[in-house]
Write a protein that binds this DNA or RNA. Structure first.
Lengths: 258, 258
DNA sequence: TGGGGAAATTGATCCATCTCAAGGCAGGAA
DNA sequence: TTCCTGCCTTGAGATGGATCAATTTCCCCA
């Protein structure tokens, strides 16, 4: 349980480079195929080396609700999310669930410590992923230290996010948790100010509850209260508009709120 | 918030190699000096290369209560704990604290993503640490991919531990949290059975409470109840004896309890 | 366009944990 | 030794969020 790791100045999750338009020519675009352009690993390698990375991958679509990573199963694959969202979670023997995160486009997952996965992953909505066989991935990481370096940066970012989530789960009130969640969904982070921001929440109330350590009812009531306080507006269950990010930041407990 | 990362079959936190006794000769023992032998990084490098690692380090002792890493401060150093224990924590503006982990001998910390630390660290008891200047460390990681590889393994282990802690904070009862905490302190993990295990807890009730997302009083009451149920014995506030690890595992919600 | 089932909201009550408060104990200073 | 201070334990009462229980809304599909 030690700290996070700093390696250089790159942001943890840079926005993916746009796929270059190649004027209709069928030029090999290794980073573009299989959505690899969207992997943050991508810009760690030169294009000629990336071709090898792409060769490893097979694409796959996943229907909502399908569990594609099962905790304790042998970790034989590594996934890159191309589109859609997955929920990552752990279960207690009696069925209580904690969602440890949501993985959207660009996220990669499945490289566990030890021989088996330490969490399960299930599609929230329709997903597209690339699958990489583990042994090949391990060899590739060995051959390209730059990729491994990038992976360490990403892991360090995840670790910082995990610590932030521990603070939320251990010490924040329901109102603070929901405010934090909404602001975190608005990437890039909105510091403060009356910017109108509209969010789409692909996950259900049940998912949000299990992510925030609350119940469905508390999440719903808290959203209703935030609406009554004119901090947010609800356009159906999965569209949220942030009306006062300044106040929301203050509620969320952001260090640099006002 | 994506998953954890698997790179090979090594355990996440191997027990440190013993420092070889060199029969009193003042032979250079690079891995041994500055407690580097206790770094899990150590066995990733050959001894001649380790000499360079050791050259970077300066040793330091830290008094109980001293904050030696401050959240948001520029991350200019990297620490390796040689002896003693540190608490790693994050604060909310109003002073609420979440301890995200305890770092004992062999743990290294401080390599944050981005330019500043994402958490604070404070000595629980008397500590000895090695300090590594960040720029030199970055260069060293670049020169020795094996060290970086090892660091990624460690980070992956931390990430799995963080997910486990999220499950605890989000979904476990006070009794389950305390049982989980006690079992986790007993490294290596005790699966089940009536083994008599004695634990030393260097941290205060307040630390335990802030680590488990509870109050001091609840921690104390819960320990008292576990004692009344003959699952543990208390020999003073900081000595705990586990009487029935089997049942404790079941309470903690271990997947493979009985 | 309307019907049906799942998801979300809302309400009433309960309870695990927090809060407030009062001792108890152990270790250090004089 | 005795006081003193800080931590820990124990008790009594308060409460935020959980639980139980209806509706209501959404949205998919005929």
């Amino acid at each position: 349980m030690a700290g996070t790791y700093q390696l250089n100045q790159h942001p943890a999750r840079p926005t993916a480079r746009p796929i270059p338009i190649v004027l209709g020519l069928p030029v090999p675009e290794p980073c573009g195929s299989c959505g690899v352009r969207h992997m943050s690993l991508c810009h760690a390698v030169e294009d000629k080396d990336l071709a090898r990375l792409v060769d490893l991958a097979t694409t796959d679509t996943i229907r909502p609700g399908r569990v594609f990573i099962q905790e304790h199963d042998p970790a034989i694959e590594f996934f890159n999310v191309t589109s859609g969202t997955a929920r990552l979670f752990k279960l207690l023997p009696d069925g209580r669930r904690q969602i440890t995160g949501f993985a959207g486009p660009g996220h990669f997952l499945g490289l566990a410590v030890g021989p088996s996965y330490s969490f399960s992953a299930e599609a929230v909505d329709d997903m597209k992923v690339c699958r990489f066989p583990r042994p090949k991935m391990v060899r590739l990481l060995h051959d390209f230290p730059a990729v491994e370096h990038r992976l360490l940066e990403v892991a360090a970012g995840e670790l910082a996010a995990a610590q932030e989530q521990m603070l939320l789960l251990g010490r924040k009130t329901a109102r603070e948790r929901v405010a934090s969640f909404l602001l975190a969904r608005a990437a890039p982070p909105i510091p403060c100010g009356p910017t109108e921001t509209r969010l789409h929440l692909p996950m259900s109330r049940s998912d949000i509850a299990d992510y925030l350590g609350l119940t469905i009812e508390t999440v719903s009531r808290t959203l209703t209260r935030l609406k009554a306080d004119r901090l947010i507006e609800l356009h159906g269950p999965s569209e949220v508009e942030l009306l006062d990010t300044c106040q929301l930041n203050a509620i969320a407990g952001a260090e640099f709120a006002v």
